[in-house]
Every structure is written in structure tokens, then in C-alpha cells.
Design a protein around this nucleic acid. Structure first.
Lengths: 224, 224
DNA sequence: GCTTCAACTTGAACATGTTCAAATCAAATC
DNA sequence: GATTTGATTTGAACATGTTCAAGTTGAAGC
């Protein structure tokens, strides 16, 4: 249960080697099939040592999640600095998500469920994983703000969080996708990103003004 | 792993007593805090006996889930045979969900995550839990079909499944709701059910015709 | 060089989900 | 009533996440 940041060179190296072993094994065998003993073995430390640096197996998953996010953020950087069209930015970002995660597809199910568990410290809605979630939301804020789309401020305010939620939905679909090359997920991404951009522009219609206000204030209330 | 339906009176009674013990303990202590040994103890059977009737602890949760659904279906029956207004039917049905589940609120998190786990046999998107999901979807089909709302057939086709998904979302929100009397969830239900009904009528607008077709055909494609 | 002390490491021990071979039971058959 | 046979029951054994008290290490202060 102790949250011990390494205080010595030796400690830092131990933590790093344990983490690397865990990332490798999660990717090779998945979450459940990776035992804490196997992680300790591959890292060349004792079982107890792992618990000195990571309070639980779930906390190691959080690091896995963070690692994936960093890969993703790096992958979309060129696109986000070049492209200005919102639909293209969003589509590219979503495609990059599933391309980045593709090596972990077989094991993603168990990892996703760990993260979605409301009673887990890893749940992004509140707890240890909150800072990481905020980073991902910030990425989507950049997707929006760096585009040349003119978006009403009330919508722009809620959009990043909504897109993060949307990404979660896409990932959940992708986990179940057994199609070759994950083509179905790619199609769904193309279609939904287009729809989202279209919906944003439709939201300016006078008939929709009322519902739009209600939806947005509801969302704001939900976020607290 | 064996799926053994009881073949004798004795077997039937054993299965029933184990199930009852499990339901009680889940409600009293939650999923994780309930051990298989505790279930066997309270049921007055040995540990191994439980595994003769239920392949795993998760399968006992499925029964818990089914039990809750039956309580809910019973609770909304009067409303559904009396009320004809769609918004009122939907609102009442959703309110009944969280009222029915209220006794399990403290333990709902761990149960929900078990069900949402894509690699679990309990996942409603495909596996053992599929029949139960179909029952819940059928309930929402009745909510729609028993109303006096005139709904275009392409929408009506996808609506029950969508409402089931919506119910899942509300439950997820409810799990995190710490407000007294779960008032916030009730407010969200009132607001969202209204919005849904409004959206259904808006979908007939000529401007929305295109998006509507695209959304519906996308949903149909996702369901397979 | 010696002492001290916090950081680090270790492996045994525990709790719990699951498996399984053996024992027990009870109904059908003779 | 004895035998057979399949259903049921049992508890020991195993795997694995987690805890913890005890041991080891190494640098700072003397």
C-alpha cells in the first residue's frame, strides 16, 4: 500500500526494470495471464520488491495506459501541426489511437475492464488516474483549438471531454472487432467523426437551439 | 467448468440454497468481499459443491443480475399497462431501475465492472449473458411499442437497443452518485428522457434527414 | 574505519478463486 | 435385499495477489 518513490539510484533502476518487465509481459500475455511472480522473475527481483514500488498489479496497468497515451500523443503530433480541418484532425487522431493500440489488441479487453471498474483506483472518473485522463482530454482540446473550425464557445467548452468519452466508446468497439485489419473500426471512425463535425455545425440551427442549451447544461452539471 | 443442471430433488435444493446465499451475501458485502467459502458456509454445503452448479463466481453475479431484472420488470408492469405517453413511460421505467437497484448501490460498482468486462462470460455483448440482455431489450421494446407516440419505423427498429445502452449509461452515472436520495441521478433521468423524446420528434425535420439516415445505418452496421 | 539509519530486498505466510480425484448417496434394476 | 450407476458432495491441493517482519545494503556523520 506504500507509495514509495525511489530515493536512490539503486531504487530508480529497480523501479524501471520492474516496470519494463511488466509492460513487456502485459503485451505478450495480457493482464490476467501475467503474474506478479513472472514480472518479478523477469525483472530479476523478488516478489516483494515489486510491491515496494507499485502498490498493486492494477497500478502497473496504469503505467501501461500512460505509456500508450505517450505513444499516441507522439504519433499525432505531425498531423496536428500540419492539418487545420477539424474532421481530418479528429479522424487522424482516432485512427492513430487504434493503430497505436493494435499491438495490444489481444490483451486490451482485460486492461480496459480494469480501467473501467468504478471501484478501481485506476478509474479515470476519479482517483489516481485522474491526471492521466486530464492529459488525454488536453490532447482533444488541442485537436479542436488547433482547427480552423468556428465553434460556439458553449460547445467548445464541453467538446474535449466529450471527445475523450467518444474515444473510450471507439476503443470498446475496437476490442470486440474481429475484422481483418480492424477495418470495421476504421469505417466506424470515418463515419462517426464526420457525423460529429456535422452535428457541431447543425447545432447552430434555430430549431435545435433549445435542445442544444439543455444538452450542454446537462453535461456541465454531470461533470460537476 | 461443468454446466450441471440439477437432475435430482436434492440437487435442485442444493443449487437453490447456494444461489440464495450468494444473492444475500453480494447484497450484504458486495462482490469482492464475498468469498466462495462464505457462500458455501452460509449455504451449508462444501466449497466444491458450489462449483458443481456454478462454473465460477462470475456466474453467480449473472444470477444476481437476472434477479434484479426480474424485480425491475415486475415494478414497471403497472405503469406500462396504464400510461401511454412515451416520455412518462420512459421516465418511470428509468426511475424504477435505480429504485430497484438502490439496495445494492454500495456494491454495484464491483458488479457493474464484472459485467462490463469484455473478456468475461458475463459481458452482455456476446456470451452467456446474451439471453438476459435480450430480455432487457425486450422490456424497452415494450416501453416504446406500448406508447401512443408515432415513431418512424427505422427509428423504432433501433430504439430498444439504444435505450438499453442508455440505461447502462444511467447506471454507470448512478454508481458514482453520492447525492442524498440519489437526487442527481433522478434529475439526470428526468432531463435525458425528455431530451430523448424530443430528439425522436426532431429527427423528422428535413435538415436532419441526412444525418438521421447515416446514424441509423451506422448503428445497424455496428449491431451486425 | 566505525556507527547509524533509512532505503531497499527478501521470502515466508495468508486469503481466495478454482480444480479434481475420491467418497458418498440414492434411485433404478435385478 | 443386493447391485449398479450416475448424480452429488467433499476437502485437499494449487495458483496467484498481497502483506509483513526480518534481513541486507550503502551512504552520511563521526
Amino acid at each position: 500500500m506504500a507509495i514509495a518513490l525511489p530515493k536512490t539510484k539503486r531504487g530508480e533502476s529497480s523501479r524501471a526494470v520492474i516496470l519494463q518487465a511488466a509492460l513487456d509481459l502485459f503485451q505478450e500475455r495480457g493482464y490476467e495471464a501475467t503474474t506478479m511472480r513472472a514480472i518479478a522473475d523477469r525483472a530479476g527481483v523478488s516478489l516483494g520488491s515489486s510491491y515496494h514500488y507499485f502498490p498493486s498489479k492494477e497500478h502497473l496497468v496504469l503505467e501501461f495506459y500512460r505509456h500508450t497515451h505517450e505513444l499516441h500523443a507522439e504519433a499525432v503530433r505531425p498531423l496536428l501541426s500540419r492539418e487545420r480541418d477539424l474532421a481530418a484532425r479528429l479522424r487522424g487522431t482516432m485512427r492513430a489511437v487504434i493503430i497505436t493500440c493494435e499491438p495490444f489488441h489481444a490483451v486490451a479487453g482485460s486492461i480496459f475492464s480494469t480501467v473501467a471498474n468504478p471501484s478501481s483506483p485506476l478509474n479515470p472518473f476519479g482517483g489516481t488516474a485522474r491526471p492521466l485522463r486530464d492529459e488525454v482530454v488536453a490532447l482533444y482540446a488541442e485537436v479542436v483549438s488547433g482547427s480552423d473550425a468556428r465553434i460556439a464557445s458553449d460547445i467548445a467548452e464541453m467538446l474535449p471531454l466529450t471527445l475523450w468519452l467518444y474515444q473510450m466508446g471507439i476503443l470498446y468497439f475496437w476490442i470486440f472487432d474481429r475484422s481483418p485489419g480492424r477495418l470495421r473500426t476504421l469505417e466506424v471512425i470515418d463515419e462517426t467523426t464526420d457525423l460529429i463535425v456535422r452535428l457541431i455545425s447543425l447545432a447552430n440551427l434555430p430549431v435545435l437551439r433549445g435542445s442544444r442549451k439543455r444538452v450542454l447544461s446537462l453535461m456541465k452539471a454531470i461533470v460537476e
